[in-house]
Design a protein around this nucleic acid. Structure first.
Lengths: 162, 162
DNA sequence: TGCGTATCCTAGCTCCGAGGTAGGTATTCG
DNA sequence: CGAATACCTACCTCGGAGCTAGGATACGCA
């Protein structure tokens, strides 16, 4: 479904949000990737690749050199998880057929031919994923909130164990 | 995200639902996989693998021999897309960490250790996917319904083009 | 000024699963 | 019987996930 890119990357973002050093006049104190890799038990060299994507998406900022590191580019509440996952995984589409045009409308690739009969299904799935990710921000993840929202997630009745 | 297994398999199911021969006293007239492969432009040998999963999940029934083939095991309205996708793809989980226990509750693997800080996120995504799939049945896909439901899927404002 | 610590960049490596092929056997109809 | 079909097992190939390696560049500090 999602790869470890999303998992690791989200963990990095959460780590940055939690450990955010106080802003010392000159921007927030950056956190080195090494310390994050250590704390999370993830391979540093691999995280470097992931964090690059986050930087390209302007979700984190970096300071090079000694005592350098990364910090969030915006307050956690202004970073949606859709942005984060998108930056890490690329465009979110349940199957190839569904993609998004320049205006954000969902379209079926192979337009012109017979549109895939199952378009409706994948469109809905895509929509529900993107909506769910868009509704959450980094701020929602920095605290271990047990029951923050009243009843947003009714646990699926049948989870369909294979 | 989802593989072609889901795509092809769903198309087979839709095809079966659409072409469903009249019940001729002795159960519905089965449709050969070959004709489906032809009509959909998909490789027959590969479909055989997929349809096996559908059969194991008791979503289709088969008749062997000449004039044999497959037919739906239940009326389309009683087959949820969650069942279909689950049969084809295996358990639906956005990342490894999230799985479902015997009672259908969502749990984080590596329980006991520090639970993944991002559990809340993946749990919600999983929930929204499963819910969406569970709310649709095969019957919803057999007609090209342009706007059947009033406003179930508000198109995501930003589709986040990479 | 030079050393240590970081980010940055490019290249490559390995392994596994997706996606498909091949070829056989069993079953049923005409 | 023989054609058509489902059923089963084994195999192949290729691309991407998930790393690793090694350097170049930038910054802080003694």
């Amino acid at each position: 479904m999602f790869s470890t890119k999303a998992e690791y990357g989200v963990r990095v973002m959460v780590h940055l949000a939690r450990e955010a050093g106080d802003d010392a006049g000159d921007g927030p104190v950056p956190i080195s990737l090494g310390s994050i890799a250590d704390a999370e038990g993830l391979p540093l060299a691999y995280l470097e690749h992931l964090v690059r994507r986050l930087r390209n998406a302007e979700l984190v900022e970096s300071r090079r050199g000694a005592h350098g590191g990364y910090s969030l580019a915006r307050p956690p509440a202004q970073i949606t998880m859709a942005e984060v996952v998108e930056a890490l995984e690329g465009e979110i589409a349940p199957i190839e057929c569904i993609t998004a045009d320049s205006e954000g409308a969902l379209v079926c690739a192979r337009e012109g031919e017979a549109p895939c009969p199952t378009k409706l299904l994948w469109t809905r799935v895509q929509g529900s994923i993107v909506r769910t990710l868009s509704e959450m921000t980094l701020a929602d993840l920095i605290l271990p909130l047990p029951h923050r929202v009243p009843a947003p997630l009714s646990p699926p009745k049948e989870t369909l164990t294979a």
